[in-house]
Structure formats: structure tokens, C-alpha cells
Amino acid sequence: MSFIVDHYNYWIVVLLMMMGFYVVIAANNLVKKIVGLNIFQTSVFMMYISIGKVNGGSAPIAAEGITTYSNPLPHVLILTAIVVGVATTAVGLALVVRIKRAYGTVEENEFEDKEDLI
């Protein structure tokens, strides 16, 4: 049981990463690819936060009577990464909108043979 609890978070992270990666490669629709990319990204966030957790620890805000805190450093890295992540997702979605305008479709297999059309 303790072997599972000790590694469960990492396994789920890998599983999420696999699912996100699969959607990025295999999905036909560009919007869905971006959703996949976001799942991939969240799996990395989950990895960092899992590493920062200390058993019996508390949120890293100093308070009386608390001696053990979780590691604040991964929290800082991921907090900013989430906001940067949504900003870059927005750029990706903007590109999708422009692709739709130029090619009339956002399905990968449909604009493969329309290369000269812009």
C-alpha cells in the first residue's frame, strides 16, 4: 500500500502526460490539439506541486504553532507558469482563428492539400 501511495501522484502525472501527448499528435481538430497541449501542461504543474509536498506540512504562509511547511519554491514557479500558459494558449487560439480565415477549415486532414491557398 505504501508503495502505491509513494508513487501514485507520479503515475497519474505520467498518465495525464500520455493522454495530453496523444491528443496533441492524434487529434484532427486544432482546437482539440490545444486542449491536449493544456492537459500536457497541467501534468507538468501537477508534477512540480507533488514534489513540493511535505507530509504533515502546511501551506507556506507563516503562522503561529506551525513548524512544518511545504516547499514554497515549486509553488512560485507553477503560479507564474499557469498565467504564462494561458497567455500562450491565447496566442495558439489566435493562430487557429487566422488559419480558419485563410484555409476555411481547422481540420488537419482538410488543409493538407490546400498549401497554395492563402
Binding site: V31, I34, V35, N38, T42, F45, I49, S50, G52, K53, V54, G57, S58, A59, P60, I61, Y69, S70, P74, H75, I78, L79, I82, V83, G85, V86, T89, A90, L93, V96, V97
Partner: peptide, 27 residues
């Protein structure tokens, strides 16, 4: 649950709020 309250705050506002709206706008 993993003690990252600041991160949770950001994820709830960004992930469930802004990115959902942007994706719906694209759709």
C-alpha cells in the same frame, strides 16, 4: 490538498475562467 493555495487560486481563476472563455470564443 497539496498545500499549494496560491497555485490553486490561480488555476481556478485562469483555467476555469479565462481559458474556457477564450476556447469558447474560438469555437
Amino acid at each position: 490538498n497539496l498545500d499549494a493555495v496560491d497555485v490553486a487560486f490561480t488555476e481556478a481563476a485562469v483555467g476555469a475562467g479565462i481559458s474556457t472563455v477564450l476556447m469558447l470564443g474560438t469555437l
